[in-house]
């Protein structure tokens, strides 16, 4: 017979206010980070502008008026028109749609590939690990931009979907390595052995035990990846290898500045998209840094 042990148990914890899950604690820490909150505010502003673009301007960002080429700012065209007579302001806010979509979906796609390959490599090890990591090494050995350029050059028509796929296929190895590394360090922990000791399946161990404990570095890197993706889109569009005209993207707008006359006389055409890229990337990076501080094991008292 077991005596009611509660009475003699002297180590029952002191009364705690409420039960805080590790995620709630992390969120609390994150919300204390002012820069990260500013980043989120800026990003939300851009997202709202992109979503409500039709309400902010009546102009069609893809249709040009050849009678109105390279006009300076006016009440009709807030940021003037470009070399094809398209409204720059309309292109800027519609461009936010494309740039943010490309950044976000490329990040998601990369995350999907990276987490699956990284999880397989880190969990199973051995031959699976070798195969995946050698493939990753191969991809990393090729310069990213050149590889992306080559694939785009081979493809005849580049749509947003294809563009996202190209970026994701060329940039997954970084994330794979991070996920694999996190899995390898977790694999040695006793709670993973404990999960195996109760007879949990591989799927359950990966999704219930590995991923929640590796979520920190995954989220941080995914966020920073999104910033990189936006820059990559702009860079490729700038040299005319991105999403083709007349689709408005920030990179496409900056490529106008390749013309020395526009560069000199019409800063209103290329400064706003440049600033938009700068602010977005900066905002995302601040969010990423905030998340990194949140998940940092040193600040995470267990």
């Amino acid at each position: 017979m077991l005596k009611p042990n509660i009475t003699k148990n002297t180590e029952v914890s002191s009364n705690q206010k409420h039960n805080q899950s590790p995620f709630k604690l992390a969120r609390k820490r994150f919300l204390r980070n002012k820069l990260a909150i500013a980043g989120i505010a800026v990003l939300i502003l851009f997202i709202l502008a992109a979503l409500f673009a039709p309400l902010l301007t009546q102009h069609d960002p893809t249709k040009g008026d050849l009678m109105l080429i390279e006009k300076p700012p006016s009440s009709e065209h807030l940021l003037g028109t470009d070399s094809s007579g398209r409204d720059n302001f309309a292109r800027l806010i519609y461009g936010a749609r494309i740039s943010l979509t490309v950044g976000f979906s490329a990040m998601l796609f990369t995350l999907l590939i990276g987490v699956i390959t990284g999880a397989l490599a880190g969990y199973y090890g051995g031959k699976v690990d070798n195969l995946i990591m050698r493939a990753a090494d191969l991809m990393l050995a090729l310069p990213f931009l050149v590889l992306a350029l080559t694939i785009i050059a081979i493809l005849e028509k580049v749509t947003v979907g294809i563009f996202v796929a190209v970026i994701a296929i060329t940039s997954w190895p970084t994330l794979t390595r991070i996920v694999r590394g996190a899995f390898l360090s977790l694999r040695e922990q006793e709670f993973i052995l404990g999960a195996r000791a109760i007879g949990a399946t591989d799927i359950r161990i990966i999704f219930k035990h590995f991923i929640p404990n590796a979520i920190g570095p995954i989220i941080v890197n995914a966020t920073l990846l999104m910033a990189t993706m936006i820059i990559v889109e702009s860079a490729l569009s700038f040299i005319g290898m991105g999403i083709p005209q007349p689709t408005p993207t920030w990179g496409n707008m900056i490529s106008e500045a390749q013309n020395i006359r526009i560069l000199r006389d019409h800063p209103e055409a290329w400064v706003p998209p440049g600033l938009a890229i700068l602010l977005t990337v900066l905002a995302i990076n601040f969010i990423g840094d905030g998340l990194r501080d949140t998940f940092d094991p040193k600040s995470n008292r267990r």
Binding site: P22, F191, T201, N213
Partner: peptide, 28 residues
């Protein structure tokens, strides 16, 4: 079954006590 050595490493810190204790039942 097994009881492990390290009380800080042998419980998944992202799961509540209820989840941890119920997990063997869920699996088995």
């Amino acid at each position: 079954q097994m009881v492990f050595q390290d009380p800080f490493g042998s419980l998944n810190s992202k799961m509540s006590v209820a989840e941890l204790v119920e997990e063997p039942l869920l699996v088995q």
